[in-house]
């Protein structure tokens, strides 16, 4: 079952995931069925119901504004795929 409003290739691009044609076809079918299943929520009347965003109603958690030691620069860079001069190397963003 497919879902006409779901365009997997387009959403995958929004999510920054490259997919091959086979994956697009498989996901289109599988996610169509999941969305079909989720349609059952439309049977409920939710007018006037407050949405729950979080399990606990905790607001404005504050702490004393004091500096704390963070990760050591060397440790923070250890897992970076590309490093030079103690900095993370990123892929070029601006065209020349």
């Amino acid at each position: 079952m497919s879902n006409p409003s779901l365009d997997v290739r387009d959403v995958a691009r929004l999510a920054r995931i490259e997919l091959n044609d086979a994956e697009v076809a498989t996901f289109q079918e599988q996610l169509g069925r999941v969305l079909g299943y989720v349609e059952q929520l439309n049977a409920l009347d939710v007018s006037g119901v407050e949405p729950t965003a979080h399990a606990n109603p905790v607001f404005n958690v504050l702490r004393v504004d004091e500096s704390r030691a963070g990760l050591d620069r060397r440790d923070a860079l250890k897992n970076a795929p590309r490093v030079a001069n103690n900095l993370v190397v990123v892929t070029k963003v601006i065209d020349q």
Binding site: V8, V11, A12, A15, I17, E18, L19, E23, F27, L31
Partner: peptide, 15 residues
């Protein structure tokens, strides 16, 4: 992200 994530993770991110 294509190379790093497996199928189920991709499926859920897309959904």
């Amino acid at each position: 992200r294509e190379e790093g994530f497996g199928s189920e993770v991709k499926r859920r991110i897309i959904l």
